[in-house]
Nucleic acid binder design. Structure first.
Length: 876
RNA sequence: GCGGACGUGGCGAAACUGGUAGACGCAAGGGACUUAAAAUCCCUCGGAGUAUUCCGUGCGGGUUCGAUCCCCGCCGUCCGCACCA
């Protein structure tokens, strides 16, 4: 019998149209049904989707379709992270407008996404650059401001003097702007900040509750938040050496135990005391300037040696007024951590040791490791930062370092300097407040008006949204809003006098910090969220995206839900209950003799038992096959989803993306692999055609008696069904797919081994069940093929609207099992026995087996270990 | 430097986290069908061996009846943070 080949191109567009017409994936806000919210990180509308998107959305779609079939009301929306620099750069190049570029890209990418057959509710689509979205963001900014969650303060920024904008740290490469190549300056600018540090402790503590997040991401966030417990210690300055106004220096330390090992104090170049000391000290002033110039770029930090400059100031040791410690300005002290000042204990801190070794200040070990004789313990160029007992430390000697920490803290808290305690305990965080001001046009305007009389004045809510003007030009660098002839000139909403709009816009990370909440009711024109709706849908049950967002996006979103809760926009702290970070799509690289990269389309291959070689199609020259790397334009190893879908169909692309590697790991796109997936599409099509011929009609009831052949089919079906469920539940798509292939392999071999036509009622029923289950199992991965197969086997409603098969667990347990039998840990025999046989019966049978007796070589059996349902081990 | 993850066939991987190592697939080799190719179907496929055998999960030890999995020490690869006092 011949079956026509399955034609994905015709089929896929047909079913996409049908789903659309039937509104199959439209999700009502129906609180009566159990909900499931699955979300993939929304894309930036760069113009075209890439294979990484296909992988990401294929995973989310499997979860969405699976949960839908299992009876959940599934929310699976899509939108666009649409503000950002690339749109402005494109506008500059094309003499166009960022909005035009962005919306054209959105249209193109929406079409591409639709060709993948994703089960998305497009009626909820949002674009963050649309005033209908960002107006609510402006409202929340004002609410945050009123709630004390917004700050406006001076801060140091990376300033690109050519592009005239602030650059993020990631945009500074070797001290130069990534676009302009200009030397980046450190500037003090007044910036808007969101006070994420208000939640430092909670953001840290709550990580423990995120048990469905990757451990790696939680750890990265933990390190980023960077909590450390320590002591703030006030050192009195020697009046004879200190500047007139300065009487003390406060430092932060996590090692108060090492106070008697102090050899110097060091302060940041921007520390107020450094500035005071530089007055009338030209050499010191020059040193400070030099530190500033080198700045804090990564390259500078890696190579810069520890440098310092003695201010001449001396500080008194907190436990000994006669002990004077020199105060240095040093280039490795950060002003924005702790107090911008430290005491240096070189024996137990590598940086301090490097420093004293340059300036000849010496070191005194004060913590001695347990296995070392204190009298011979010396430090030369490796600091000791481990545990031990105190030495050379007066009243601390003999204590453990831990005890000494406590003792020093206790004593200094009790002693006073100028009527205040000499020290207090403090918790410090590395986490900084989130600077959101960007000197860009294509972002969400910050709804603030600056008035000479009234100062910083919020835009009244009735005047929202503050809309970006359309008539802007990009013929010169800098912020188009700033130089717009009229936009920024408004009257003060408070006093009515002429005033100016804030021309900074918000960091685009703000846009993506709450879009998941907006999806729950994107139709609300009055408020960012509708409380009854948002509280029902959130948290997102399964969030899927790239590991590159492990810190910023995910941390900002966690902050945002807390801030939204505080301002009444939602009622939860943690937005993402489950997080999954998928791996990249990589591809081999091809390099010609002349060192130029070739695309996969420009190369042909020859494979035989000696290996695989590649040749340039045009020149026939042999090329070098390089390692698989992330798809990139520069290495020309990209594969275009449109081409793949056009050639093989979306189902094949989806199947291959999910099948080859575990989802969290990188997957290598290969021509052979995608062809294997395409072959399987045809194999399934043939199999379902064969089943359609012999299966009982749709909805046939189970016959009273099921013969052994039919039982075999049913057992296979339900066993594989059980395993596929387990794999999808754990997001193990690759093993789910292996399990589906096992089922189809089983069915193919059962069909080929049948020597008689399946005309008995029980077999017909079993094959009906097999066909239904098989199609339903692969329908989340290959939905279009599944629809055609579903229709072929007689169903009238789409498989996308059908319910998941119910598992009969009794069919997954067989009457007899075959256990491997080991002798001394090595497999020597197999034992087939009743599944419910007890351990004693198994033991008696096992020691009689021929293979066991042979391996024992006449030795007596000393012990038999029976692991139920698993294995038998005979020890002898 | 600090923190973390990972090393299994020619390749991607699996092994229900202590219980038959290599499922499922890719590539390769052999065969059937065909004038031929594609497609399809059958067989082989970790190494050695005539074997009902031995060896084998980066390397070296250990715990255990039994270790890819747990412990100790190395080697290698990748990732994150980075002068955070």
């Amino acid at each position: 019998m011949t079956t026509e080949r399955y034609n994905p191109r015709e089929s896929e567009t047909k079913w996409q149209k049908i789903w659309d017409e039937r509104q199959t994936f439209k999700t009502p806000n129906d609180p009566s049904r159990p909900k499931y919210y699955v979300l993939e990180m929304f894309p930036y509308p760069s113009g075209r989707i890439h294979m990484g998107h296909v992988r990401n959305y294929a995973m989310g779609d499997v979860v969405a379709r699976y949960k839908r079939a299992r009876g959940f009301n599934v929310l699976h929306p899509m939108g666009w992270d649409a503000f950002g620099m690339p749109a402005e750069n494109a506008a500059m190049q094309n003499k166009s407008h960022p909005a035009k570029w962005t919306y054209e890209n959105i249209a193109a990418m929406r079409r591409q996404l639709q060709s993948i057959g994703l089960s998305l509710d497009w009626s909820r689509e949002i674009a963050t650059c649309d005033p209908s979205y960002y107006r609510h963001q402006q409202k929340m900014f004002l609410d945050f401001l009123a709630a004390g969650l917004v700050d406006r303060k001076q801060s140091k920024v990376n300033w690109d003097p050519v592009d005239q904008t602030v650059l993020a740290n990631e945009q500074v490469i070797d001290g130069r702007g990534w676009r302009s190549g200009a030397l980046v300056e450190q500037r003090e600018l007044t910036q808007w900040f969101l006070k994420i540090t208000d939640f430092s402790q909670d953001l840290l503590d709550s990580l423990d509750t995120l048990d469905r997040w990757p451990e790696k991401v939680r750890l990265m966030q933990k390190n980023w938040i960077g909590r450390s417990e320590g002591l703030l210690v006030r050192f009195e300055l020697d009046a004879a050496t200190a500047p007139a106004d300065a009487s003390e220096l406060e430092v932060f330390t996590t090692r108060p135990d090492t106070l008697f090992g102090a050899k110097f104090m060091a302060i940041a170049p921007d520390h107020p005391l450094a500035k005071a000391a530089a007055v009338g000290n030209q050499a010191l002033g020059e040193f400070i300037d030099e530190c500033r110039r080198i700045g804090t770029s990564v390259a500078a930090l890696e190579t810069a040696e520890k440098k310092g400059f003695d201010t001449g100031i001396r500080a008194r040791h907190p436990f000994d007024p006669n002990w004077l410690v020199p105060v240095y300005v040093a280039n490795f002290i950060l002003m924005d951590y702790g107090t911008g000042a430290i005491f240096g204990c070189p024996a137990h801190d590598q940086r301090d040791l490097d420093f004293v070794n340059t300036y000849g200040l010496g070191n005194t070990p004060v913590v001695c490791p347990a296995d070392v004789d204190p009298s011979s313990f010396t430090i030369t160029d490796v600091a000791y930062d481990g545990d031990g007992r105190m030495i050379n430390s007066r009243f601390l000697d003999g204590m453990t370092a831990l005890k000494a920490k406590e003792e020093v803290s206790r004593r200094l808290e009790a002693e006073t300097l100028g009527n205040r305690p000499k020290a207090r305990r403090q918790v410090n965080f590395k986490l900084r407040d989130w600077g959101i001001s960007r000197q860009r046009y294509w972002g969400c305007p910050i709804p603030i008006i600056h008035c000479d009389d009234c100062g910083v004045t919020p835009v009244p809510v009735k005047d929202l949204p503050v809309v970006l003007p359309d008539d802007v030009t990009f013929d010169q660098p800098g912020n188009a809003l700033e130089r717009h002839p009229t936009w920024k000139f408004v009257n003060c909403p408070s006093c009515g006098k002429p005033a100016r709009r804030e021309t900074d816009t918000m960091d685009t990370f703000v846009d993506s910090s709450w879009y998941f909440a907006r999806f729950t009711d994107p139709w609300n024109t009055e408020s960012p969220t509708t409380r009854s709706v948002v509280d029902h849908w959130l948290p997102v049950d399964q969030y899927i995206g790239g590991i590159e967002h492990a810190i910023l996006h995910l941390l900002y979103s966690r902050f945002f839900t807390r801030a939204m809760r505080k301002t009444g926009h939602c009622d939860l702290a943690e937005p993402f209950r489950g997080l999954f970070t998928q791996g990249m799509v990589v591809h081999e690289t091809y390099k010609g003799k002349d060192g130029s990269w070739l695309t996969p389309n420009e190369v042909k291959f020859v494979s035989d038992s000696s290996g695989r070689r590649g040749f340039a199609i045009v020149t026939d020259e042999e090329i070098v096959i390089g390692p698989s790397e992330k798809m990139s334009k520069s290495k020309r190893n990209t594969v275009d989803p449109d081409d793949i879908i056009g050639t093989f169909g979306a189902d094949t692309a989806r199947w291959f993306m999910l099948s080859d590697s575990p989802p969290e790991r990188d997957v290598a796109w290969t021509e052979e692999g995608v062809q294997g997936a395409a072959r399987y599409v045809q194999q399934l099509w043939r199999l379902v055609n064969d089943l359609a011929e012999i299966a009982a009609p749709v909805g046939a009831t189970m016959p009273a008696t099921i013969g052994p052949e039919a039982l075999k089919v049913r057992r296979a079906v339900h066993t594989h069904l059980m395993h596929v469920e387990e794999h999808i539940d754990r997001l193990r798509f690759n093993t789910a797919i292996a399990e589906i292939r096992k089922l189809s392999n089983d069915l193919i071999s059962i069909l080929s081994e049948m020597d008689q036509p399946a005309d008995s009622a029980d077999l017909k029923f079993a094959f009906r069940e097999a066909a239904d289950v098989l199609v339903l199992l692969f329908s989340p991965m290959m939905p279009h093929l599944a629809e055609d197969c579903w229709a072929l086997i007689g169903h009238t409603a789409p498989v996308s609207e059908s319910t998941w098969p119910s598992l009969d667990r009794s069919l997954t347990i067989s009457e007899s099992i075959t256990l491997p039998v080991q002798v001394n840990g090595k497999k020597r025999a197999e034992l087939t026995i009743a599944a419910d046989a007890d351990s004693k019966a198994i033991e008696l049978e096992a020691v009689k087996l021929e293979g066991v007796l042979r391996a024992l070589e006449g030795r007596p059996v000393r012990k038999v270990i029976v692991v139920p349902q698993r294995i038998v081990n005979v020890v002898g």
